[in-house]
Amino acid sequence: MNEVINFLHQYQTVITVIVIAVVAILFDRLLRLSMNKFFGDSSRALRADFTKYILLKNAVSFIIFMVATGLIVYNVPSLRKISLTLFAGAGIFAAIIGFASQQAFSNIISGIFIVIFKPFRVGDVVNIGPDRSGIIEDITLRHTVIRSWQNRRIIIPNSIISAETIVNSSILEELTCEHAEIGISYYSDIETACSTIEKLVAELPNYIDARTDEEKKEGDPLVRTRVIRYDDSAIIIRAYLWANDPVAAFILKTEYYRAIKKRFDEVGVEIPFPHRTIVMKEPKADEKK
């Protein structure tokens, strides 16, 4: 009889744990869907930044699962005993847990600072450090997710991303100027090369006129070119390529480099390449013997 009672009690405990877990998951899903709809409508109506809502959603999910974990521990006698034992030695474990969770709390605080001070927002095009770039996809309590240009997800802890240099191409405006440099031979005419570049860039579909009204009145050129420097075998000319956003600017730059070679060939402007002169020395008379 006691064995039957123990079995039923264990069965009831298992059912309780499953119910708590299922209810927590369903409640989290329903709450996230409701918050997505509400915050999405609110951000569009008020033209507010959606980033802070994303962090709030993640924080609510964290609280729900923490409460569910506490209920499971409370309803499972063995786990309850373990938790009481842990609390009995709280002084020792507090130091261990505090030391182990320093990085976790640092990430949470950094995530909150990111939302408050907004060095970037969800949807911004950013460069993080020297070799990580893409579009901000998500900001959680622990990390920030970046979708790279290769469609990979770069997951960076918030404490690390807060210490990095961030280049944000979308924080105020997305209008972007790309610098495209190309070298011409010292035998080529600079004016011909510059005018050819200016005409070509103006014809490219992604190029936009970024001149102010005052610059237009003063007759500033539609496309700017500058002679930047003299290299060992080339004169370097820079074109300033303006586009509506960073992605369009990158495409514009590739279109420019694809078309400029053919256009230079048509007008007789040479793009130099390295030449090597090999000198073959004749052996001396003594060396021949």
Results as ranks from 00 to 15, higher is better:
Met1Thr: 07
Asn2Val: 08
Leu8Asp: 00
Ile25Val: 15
Leu31Val: 15
Arg32Glu: 10
Ser42Gly: 00
Ala45Asn: 13
Ile54Ala: 12
Leu56Asp: 09
Val60Pro: 07
Ser61Cys: 11
Met66Pro: 04
Thr69Phe: 14
Leu71Cys: 12
Ile72Arg: 07
Phe93Thr: 12
Ala94Cys: 13
Phe105Gly: 03
Asn107Ser: 05
Asn107Tyr: 04
Lys118Ile: 02
Arg121Ala: 10
Asn127Gly: 05
Gly129Tyr: 06
Pro130Lys: 14
Pro130Cys: 05
Gly134Ile: 08
Asp138Asn: 15
Ile139Asp: 11
Val145Ala: 09
Ile161Gly: 04
Asn168Cys: 07
Ser188Gly: 05
Glu191Phe: 09
Lys199His: 08
Val201Gly: 05
Ile208Val: 15
Asp209Ser: 07
Arg211Asn: 04
Glu215Met: 13
Lys217Phe: 03
Leu222Thr: 12
Thr225Ile: 08
Arg229Tyr: 00
Ala234Met: 07
Ile235Phe: 03
Tyr240Asp: 12
Leu241His: 01
Ala243Met: 08
Asn244Lys: 15
Asp245Ser: 13
Pro246Cys: 02
Ala249Val: 12
Phe250Ile: 10
Lys253Glu: 08
Thr254Asp: 04
Tyr257Pro: 06
Tyr257Arg: 10
Arg258Lys: 14
Lys261Val: 11
Gly268Leu: 04
Ile271Trp: 03
Ile271Tyr: 05
Thr277Phe: 08
Thr277Cys: 01
Ile278Phe: 02
Met280Arg: 12
Lys281Pro: 00
Lys281Cys: 06
